[in-house]
């Protein structure tokens, strides 16, 4: 019998392999806190993705998907069009917490037939937390996207044109930074009115200045490189140079820093909706769930911790989310900034 040739594993020199073996990534891999952060954030990504498949849907959500009580779990089947709809074209009604009864008092899991109990008015805590992860990523990604776009435009224009344009734009940036973020966002949401879109606009309006500063710094650095002078000598127009030659090289670190901001952006959003300036009542949003818990700090006489689940689960979820991003952000900053590792 011929022995099968023993497979030999040779480290392949693909781009991916080189990246995996690079010094900075090795440092990242060997940092246990970074791995913990990565695992936490990845778990939240998974939760946000599968939330529709592991939660009992509410009535209006089912109606919008064309499901009936008899086919309540049909959307978990990949062959059903409802699956694709709830995953990628989620009806707005699915983001509202379903209500297990309308009791003004929070109900334990046993009493309400839900996994983690309900808040006052019967909102399902488990549903809110799972779908809240979706809301969190929606807010985080969109706000970073809007903020980055504005920041890149302002920063690149200021750095490339220089002179009075730079001065005016950057002083304006300084002024926006001078107002505490929560206060400015509070003013904006109040003026625009409560809704998830307005919440995102308000947070993007306070997030862009730091990106603008970062982009400006990077563009200023790259502007002095010889290939830019070369492009100028070839007669390319200034905006062509900025967008074709400078920005692609400047954008890397800015993208990383901005995406690591998702944690703090979600935190600001949660803080605003904790104050009552977030999405409408009943929206799956962690900050709002914490604010529900405010009225249930005291239990009935003799049972001081009777309503612990109303504040514990939402609180734990937010803490874990922020912790994950902070650990990840810390590790990345370590990797990017070699100073301090003598």
């Amino acid at each position: 019998m011929d022995a099968a040739p023993t497979p030999t594993f040779v480290a392949r020199k693909t781009a991916l392999g080189r990246w995996w073996q690079s010094k900075s990534l090795r440092r990242f891999r060997r940092n246990p806190l970074a791995i913990v952060g990565l695992v936490i954030v990845a778990s939240f990504v998974v939760i946000a993705t599968i939330a529709p498949l592991v939660t009992p849907l509410g009535r209006s959500c089912m109606r919008d998907l064309g499901l009936t009580a008899a086919t309540a779990t049909a959307h978990r089947d990949v062959r059903n069009p409802a699956f694709w709809e709830i995953m990628f074209r989620t009806p707005g009604s699915c983001y509202m917490m379903p209500r297990a009864g309308f009791s003004p008092i929070p109900q334990t899991p046993e009493a309400s037939g839900t996994l983690l109990g309900t808040t006052s008015q019967g909102y399902d805590i488990y549903y809110g937390l799972m779908w809240g992860a979706r809301t969190a990523f929606r807010i985080g990604v969109l706000v970073v996207g809007i903020g980055l776009t504005v920041g890149i435009l302002v920063g690149a224009t200021a750095a490339y044109l220089g002179g009075w344009v730079d001065n005016v734009l950057m002083r304006f940036t300084d002024m926006v930074i001078a107002v505490p973020a929560l206060v400015l966002a509070l003013v904006i949401v109040m003026v625009l009115g409560n809704s998830i879109v307005n919440l995102m606009i308000a947070i993007a309006a306070v997030a862009w200045p730091s990106y603008a500063r970062l982009v400006r710094g990077e563009v200023l650095r790259i502007k002095q490189l010889e290939y830019v002078t070369g492009a100028q000598a070839m007669g390319r127009r200034s905006f062509g140079i900025v967008f074709r030659h400078i920005l692609p090289n400047a954008i890397g670190p800015v993208l990383i820093v901005a995406s690591l901001d998702i944690g703090s952006i979600v935190l600001t959003a949660a803080a605003l909706s904790f104050l009552g300036l977030g999405p409408e009542l009943g929206y799956t949003d962690w900050g709002q769930m914490i604010s529900f818990a405010r009225n249930w700090i005291l239990g009935p006489p003799g049972q001081p911790l009777a309503y612990w689940y109303t504040s514990f689960w939402p609180g734990l979820t937010i803490v874990l989310f922020v912790l994950g991003w902070n650990l990840l952000g810390d590790a990345f900053r370590d990797v990017l900034d070699v100073r301090g590792h003598v």
Binding site: L267, A270, A271, F274, G287, I290, S291, A293, R294, I297, S311, F312, P314, G315, I318, V319, V322, L323, N326
Partner: peptide, 10 residues
Amino acid sequence: SIPTFVMGIW
């Protein structure tokens, strides 16, 4: 990592 509002409630 503990948000002010979670810390206060707890």
